[in-house]
Simulated assay, not measured.
Amino acid sequence: MIDVLDMIEEDGTSSEQRGDAKLLLKCMQSFEFIFILHLMKKVLSITHELSQALQRSDQDIVNAMKLVKMSKQKLQTIRDSGWDSLLDEVSLFCEHHEVVIPNMDDTYQTFKKSKRNSEKVSNLHYFQVQFFYQVIDRQLQELNNRFSEVNTELLLCIACLNPRDSFSAFDKKNLIRLAEFYPSKFSPVQLLELDSQLENYIVDVCSEDAFYELEGIGDLSIKMVETRRHIVYPLVYLLLKLSLILPVATATAERAFSAMKIIKTQLRNRMGDQWSGKALKEMARPNTSGNCPCIYFDNYCNDTIRVGGFFTTINNFSCDP
């Protein structure tokens, strides 16, 4: 890339193109650019396995939660004692490629043309506090927000429904705890009934050949309907339905908030709820003839869920015309 920019700087078709190439070269051959690349490489190397685990189709929740805990610990360790090693690594890279290394005690010099209102800080403060600490703190905050103790417990409880390896993840105590997260669906009497249903359920499915080699709770719910076990164990089947709906509801609501950023711009910030709702409805419609995920919410259209610190009602995102 450096060679290409050198060629454009020398042989560009216009002065504007040559000027842009020169500016890019100056930025890419700076200590700041190299520092950012090394910092992002270090951070992304920690969260890479977690990102891959969360995107896998098998949804190994237990191992994913272990990776969340490990990622938090490693990020915190880097924040507490990783600054010196990162600075040494960047400095060695700059020396090898003949890039100027700034004195950390000097005042930071910005690339911006106007320096009148820029804050006067040392290079050490700029790179360590405003970059190093801030990037890691935001990563930790994002992990803590998305995987709080309550969310983690909920996901681990859902994992106990997984039928893999002959229901090896089954844990009656955790499944009853999962039901307690839905007080409107499970009364105290139903929780007692669920306890006995779970004991009979696990003996039944483990002794039935039809339930062997199932890959996930989706397959389990289908098999329960096919064998009419959803009638025999209605409370267990309700837990399955709630577990299947949870990720779909969260993802759909997050997509709606992302679409809202496009629709409710600064020029449209006075748009009413009815108008914005219609606009979101059009954004949610698929380009093909497939059904929108909102069809899964027919029986839960009045439920309020929390997504990213906001409370939203699912029926706001209904795709009904």
Rank of each mutant, 00 (worst) to 15 (best):
M1D: 01
L5R: 12
D6L: 12
E10A: 10
D11C: 14
D11N: 08
D20F: 14
K26F: 01
K26M: 00
S30D: 10
S30R: 06
S30M: 05
F33Q: 03
I34K: 13
K41N: 02
K42E: 05
V43C: 08
S45M: 06
H48R: 14
L50M: 10
S51H: 15
L54G: 07
D60T: 05
N63S: 13
A64G: 09
L67H: 00
L67S: 01
L67V: 01
M70S: 15
S71A: 15
S71R: 06
S71P: 07
I78F: 13
R79I: 10
R79L: 15
R79G: 03
D80G: 03
S81Y: 03
D84R: 13
S85M: 10
L87S: 12
D88E: 14
E89V: 05
S91E: 12
P102W: 07
M104H: 09
M104F: 13
D105N: 15
Y108P: 07
T110C: 05
K113V: 11
S114G: 02
S114A: 09
K115T: 13
K115W: 03
R116E: 07
N117G: 11
K120V: 15
N123P: 08
Y126N: 07
F127A: 13
V129Y: 10
Q130L: 15
Q130E: 11
Y133A: 07
V135K: 05
D137R: 09
Q139P: 05
Q139N: 15
L140G: 06
E142K: 12
L143I: 14
N144S: 13
N145T: 10
S148K: 07
V150C: 05
T152G: 03
L155Y: 02
L156A: 12
C157N: 15
C157R: 13
N162T: 08
N162Q: 07
F167W: 00
K173C: 04
K173V: 03
N174T: 00
R177W: 01
A179K: 02
E180I: 06
P183S: 12
Q190D: 10
Q197N: 08
Q197E: 15
E199D: 09
Y201I: 09
I202P: 06
I202V: 09
V203I: 14
V203D: 11
C206T: 14
F211H: 00
F211E: 01
Y212C: 04
I217A: 04
L220G: 05
S221D: 08
R229G: 05
P234G: 13
L240E: 00
K241C: 03
L242W: 09
S243N: 04
S243E: 02
V248F: 02
T250M: 02
R255K: 01
A259V: 00
M260G: 04
T265H: 07
T265I: 05
W275G: 02
S276P: 03
K278I: 06
M283S: 05
A284G: 09
N287I: 12
G290Q: 02
F297E: 02
F297Y: 01
F297Q: 01
C301I: 11
I305S: 08
I305L: 09
R306N: 09
T313Q: 10
N315M: 06
S318A: 06
